[in-house]
Design a protein around this nucleic acid. Structure first.
Lengths: 326, 326
DNA sequence: ATTAGCACTCGCGGATCTGGAGTGCTAGGC
DNA sequence: GCCTAGCACTCCAGATCCGCGAGTGCTAAT
């Protein structure tokens, strides 16, 4: 019943069933495994193997006279194997040709608004995989590089934060009206300060301390900055290709799709699902998913790098039956 | 056959059918109209009226022994009537209580990133209406107020454009490396120039002319600016609540939903559908929609104001059978 | 241990049937 | 002349039934 090691034959059979099911989205009978995967044994033997795998919890049969379907557990095993292989030897067949890669890189670089680039990335990923895909803005601790304050109205100013991985804006409510000159002075002060301490420890903390003794404006700017840099909450997500999920046979039923789509609409969910993705590539299969509504899906997430550090996350959401080979 | 004026009774019947169908999402039989709307006549008479309306193209019956369903044309008439009423007298029942309005206003103001505010707006609209909703960023010609150049890498700089309705960023590719000081100088030059000509005609054109005689950096900045300000293409959309559409009975069939969702994913489509929304409120019903894939839906769009001018658009996408009373 | 053969199970699609809903028509009433 | 009551007719929707085919699990033979 439990996962004692599979012998070679069982493993072959399991792999075959998984691959076949991924391709057909229908229960896989022994006959098909026999025809398409030359295992050197007859259907009957395959059947007995499948029987054993079923007892071990790797396969499942929808009803007595149907083929077998892999369980989450089977996928888990399969994916783990794939990943460890990929880490070991270099992956044998790059899913994207070099030319394709280059084209994508080009298209991304051509976008002259950083957000657009991310959106484009999500789009590309979605159309490439035919699944809904998500790309997050760079998040996590970053180092500020410049700050600009721009007057908006009497009591508001726009704070433009330039970090090592892009810029973002926030509206700052001023306690008292400030002149354009004053704003500019503060911008320059803060920016220069940032430059001065660049590369040493955590600049913000020190700046905050120094700001205590300054006038209110500087203090509130610093407050805003601290909030801005405080990792959580300032990650945004671009979701693209949601409609793709409707192509999948297992999502032909609206009642099954709704929770998933609803989940993709909610930022907290995306955060929960995508952000805890520490290693390079992470796969969550079915019920492994922290979010109840996504228990019918798998999520493949990977961090992407920008300027050295891994900062953002991108992911693909699909049925548990997806070609994990990516 | 054609739309000669409806007499009072026919109109009453038509209104009743529309309202009832909107509520039930099922063909409306004469009996129901008789019971729920006291028209003072018997079901038989109502039937005869419905028959006439059917011939005139306002109603439709899915099959011989089913009730009647309003056609696009009926909705069109109904909506026009509603809109002209709303413009005339003040609308009798504000759909949102004053308290609700205030709460929403608060929540929007609380967001300290402008984009987030828009996203929040879309979310609110979606949860309020229970339909997918779209909000666009302010678009159209705007007046620049400030420009900041920030060095990013050797050959790129970030251009932060501050307009009267917010800020946006673009990446500028530099022909030759420029020092931080140089960038700053150009920023200041352009910004001061913008201030100087504020309020008079079209500042950009003049700036462009003057820039011809300057060094390359200024020229390319100006080029970028012109592109940025050139209305089209820099509107972004926030779509929220797509999953809502799956609640609608007419979208229980995945094949019907897919095109719509796919359309909502594509920016050009949104542009086509939403942007040509000149008056305050605009309703596109079914086939009136310019986009083939949206022929099963209606789109209610309205411009929103920010600082005086109408700049952005927000809209709701629903089945043709939606409570147009909003 | 593998395999061929075979009986058995079960889901699925198609055909059939029936009840009910709602209409359209017609004949009679105000 | 318009409205209404009554009724026959139509047609969909759901239930039921049936037969087929698919695929398994067992068993006996190699």
């Amino acid at each position: 019943m439990l996962a004692q090691e599979l012998d070679a034959r069982k493993e072959q059979i399991l792999w075959a069933v998984i691959r076949e099911y991924v391709a057909r989205a229908e229960p896989v009978p022994s006959e098909v495994v026999f025809q398409r995967y030359s295992l050197g044994v007859s259907p009957a033997t395959i059947r007995s193997g499948m029987h054993a795998l079923t007892e071990m919890g790797y396969l499942r049969q929808p009803h007595t006279s149907a083929g077998r379907v892999p369980t989450d557990r089977a996928y888990r095993l399969y994916v783990d194997r794939l990943l460890s292989q990929a880490c070991g030897g270099s992956s044998p067949e790059p899913v994207l040709s070099a030319a394709e890669r280059e084209r994508i890189r080009r298209r991304l670089a051509a976008r002259d608004r950083p957000e657009e680039a991310l959106e484009e990335a999500a789009q590309t990923l979605a159309s490439l995989t035919e699944y809904p895909s998500v790309v997050s803005t760079p998040g996590g601790p970053r180092r500020l590089r410049h700050v600009h304050l721009v007057p908006l109205a009497q009591d508001r100013a726009l704070v433009v934060l330039v970090t090592e991985s892009g810029a973002e804006q926030r509206v700052l409510r001023l306690e008292r009206p400030a002149s354009a000159e004053e704003l500019e002075e503060v911008s320059r002060l803060v920016s220069r300060w940032l430059e001065a301490v660049a590369g040493q420890g955590e600049p913000l903390e020190r700046l905050a301390a120094q700001a205590q003794s300054h006038r209110g404006l500087l203090a509130s700017v610093v407050g805003q900055l601290r909030r801005a840099v405080a990792a959580r909450g300032n990650v945004r997500f671009f979701v693209q290709g949601v409609a793709n999920i409707l192509k999948q046979p297992e999502f032909q039923d609206v009642r099954r799709v709704r929770p998933v789509l609803a989940a993709l609409d909610r930022e907290e969910v995306l955060r929960n699902v995508l952000l805890p993705a520490p290693p390079e590539v992470h796969v969550r299969i079915g019920r492994e998913n922290p979010v109840e509504d996504m228990r019918d899906c798998s999520v493949v997430a990977a961090a992407y790098r920008a300027g050295g550090r891994a900062v953002g996350v991108l992911g693909v959401v699909g049925p548990t039956r997806m070609p994990y080979a990516r």
